[in-house]
């Protein structure tokens, strides 16, 4: 059994690589740092499913929470608001404990 690389509470960094083919990591979250809220389990790879492949190997999918301020910087409406997205493990790396990725 492949174990998830991240656990709830982990800070994770979203990769900035270009989205080739079919990608479910939105542009506005790439390069941002968030916190894992939940491990959803393993799901088929949408990029492969999109081209009629079986979508294997599966990847762990995580619910990741981002502070609005860390995504939009000063344009954020309210410092307590967050945006949450479901992101695949192959788009995430572990962020250093204090790392924040404020919007420019």
């Amino acid at each position: 059994m492949i174990e998830p690389r991240f656990a709830p509470g982990d800070r994770v960094h979203v990769d900035t690589r270009p989205a080739e083919r079919h990608c479910r990591t939105p542009f506005y979250l790439r390069g941002r740092t968030g916190v894992v809220e939940a491990v959803h389990g393993r799901f088929r790879d949408p990029d492969r499913l999109a081209f009629h492949r079986p979508g294997l190997p599966k990847h762990y999918l995580y619910r990741v929470r981002f502070d609005q301020v860390s995504v939009w910087g000063e344009a954020a409406e309210n410092s307590a608001d967050v945006v949450v997205a479901d992101l695949f493990e192959h788009w995430l790396t572990k962020a250093s404990p204090g790392e924040t990725a404020h919007a420019k």
Binding site: P18, A19, E20, C23, P26, F27, Y28, L29, V71
Partner: peptide
């Protein structure tokens, strides 16, 4: 500055923000 890009940076459908 985040333009849509055929190179795959931001797809036409990827409109968040």
């Amino acid at each position: 500055t985040d333009k849509f890009s055929p190179a795959g940076t931001r797809g036409i459908h990827d409109v968040g923000g």
